[in-house]
Write a protein that binds this DNA or RNA. Structure first.
Lengths: 312, 312
DNA sequence: CGATCTTACGGGATTCGTAAACATA
DNA sequence: TATGTTTACGAATCCCGTAAGATCG
């Protein structure tokens, strides 16, 4: 069974419309003898003469009419498939699904997404704000294109690219004794009630590794950052938060102090499926995130920048 | 813009299903390096990498998934179009429209059609029983594939192949004086009332050319053969009919006598559009008619033969 | 005789298969 | 090291364009 090509299909449609070899050949940008050969190869391929032709007239045979019904539709679908993927490549259409830790999803990420949306309005965006475990599981299943999260022990099937090392800061009331220090050492924390995030948050897991045992006892253990801030403002304790979430703690009665010590950082990664390439749209978004990684921790400036010039 | 071929499509679908170059190559009956080249040419054609591949795994990229949606459907339609025209070539489906003079349509043709229908039950048949002018106009317009009719003056755009020369016979009551003669000469007719067919019938037009003026006067002028026979049986006149219609005149009280003279024939043709080929189905039917042309004038034997063995 | 399709044929690109190189678990 | 994909490369094939041939009005 011969295999047909779009070239033959285009030639057929051109000849069926023009009913004239020379003109149809010109339309296909080939010489007339070459065009004849294409038609002949097509006829050989389908096993039937498709045109009744003399020097004076070119007409479809009955079999040609039958073939023509399929041919033009087929060609149209072919070109539609081609333009379809072209749209995806040009990011005129498509979809990106990205996961992110709630802290990133609330602060830094919206500015990136707004810029991307402005440049490629045809591409749909799904954002899953969830803790690292959920994000990574969904990346592994293919549900998400990639995620911004911390690494974890089981990274099989995943690969991560380093994004940002987020420094930890103490947040406490301005009236708190610790507010007088310029930097905070781990041991300082042991004497005060500590407001922790839930145990499966990446911040908490990092702190478990670096805090002295005395400071790891959870006085409070909350789900949401805003709750933690509220507790601190009420004077119920102090908390340790990564830099990028500090915009939550902007209040006159609160102060922020850097933690001293090498361990007080949380490394964030762009994590995707191992050995799999991202869609063009996802890759573009990925690259923009890498390019603007220094903005993390200054999330507000990113937000205001995007608000001032939403499109490039 | 590169042009895609079904070969590339088949390779893509095979690889998308097998997710393994060597196996997919085997399925496509090419060596694995050649198969790699096909995939690479396809990727170059659409302008995007469609598979993420290593020695250990072959997976679709996001763009590959997008392309795959179209590809399998496209390929299926391609092969469907091919099998569709194959069905027409094998006469498993299709349609033939044939026109015929009422005399042929009633007598000889049904046997031919029954045989053809038995051999190719998938092919629809339209039969238009009309006078020659209507038949030829519809052939010229393409409404009919071909027609069995007499030629006429204006045959532009038409071409006819000789089918049969139908002899004319006198039909009269057994008691009529002319019944005593073995053959009838034109002059004999002038003395008796003549039952004619309508003026635009081919029989009448032929008779106008060969009968002496005295016999051309129409005593009766009817539309239908059965009416003419009725008039003759009632003793109201005699009639002249072509051989193939004589089965209508089978009655004990009627006799049939050949007309003497070279002009007393009507030539019938298979008439189709000039320079246009017939569909396979129409051509087959056409050829069968040519092959069985000697059966015209013995219509009954054809009918009974087909009744005895309806299928081959 | 002019317009038009087909055949002939040489050159260049494409594609195939074999063999070697390369990559990954 | 074993499995599996890519690269290298010579040979066969395909396809194009030019030129000559054939056919119909």
């Amino acid at each position: 069974m011969h295999d047909l090509s779009t070239r033959q299909l285009r030639a057929f449609v051109a000849l069926a419309q023009e009913r004239h070899f020379t003109r149809a050949a010109a339309r296909c940008h080939v010489t007339q003898p070459a065009f004849s050969a294409i038609i002949q190869s097509l006829e050989a391929g389908v096993g039937a003469r498709l045109f009744d032709r003399s020097t004076r007239s070119v007409e479809l045979t009955p079999e040609g009419e039958v073939f023509g019904i399929s041919a033009s539709r087929l060609l149209a679908e072919f070109e539609r498939a081609q333009s379809d993927i072209g749209d995806h490549l040009a990011q005129r259409q498509g979809h990106v699904s990205v996961g992110a830790l709630p802290s990133l999803a609330a602060g830094w990420l919206p500015g990136i997404l707004a810029q991307y949306r402005a440049d490629y309005p045809g591409v749909g965006i799904s954002l899953v704000d969830a803790l690292a475990d959920v994000c990574l599981d969904r990346v592994r299943s293919g549900e998400l294109d990639f995620a911004l999260a911390a690494r974890r022990n089981d990274m099989t099937g995943l690969e991560g690219e380093f994004l940002y090392a987020d420094k930890f800061y103490l947040v406490c009331p301005a009236t708190h004794p610790l507010a007088k220090r310029r930097t905070i050492r781990p041991a300082d924390l042991a004497r005060w009630p500590l407001v922790h995030m839930t145990r499966n948050s990446s911040v908490r897991q990092r702190l478990e590794q670096v805090l002295p045992a005395a400071a790891r006892a959870a006085t409070f253990e909350v789900e949401h950052l805003a709750t933690a801030i509220g507790l601190v403002r009420a004077g119920l304790g102090v908390s340790v938060m990564p830099a990028m979430t500090l915009f939550h703690a902007k209040a006159p009665e609160l102060v922020v102090r850097p933690m001293a010590g090498a361990g007080f950082t949380r490394s964030l990664y762009l994590i995707k499926r191992e050995g799999r390439s991202l869609s063009i749209a996802a890759q573009t978004l990925h690259d923009r995130m890498m390019a603007q990684r220094e903005q993390i921790g200054r999330a507000e400036s990113v937000l205001s920048a995007s608000a001032q010039q939403p499109a490039s």
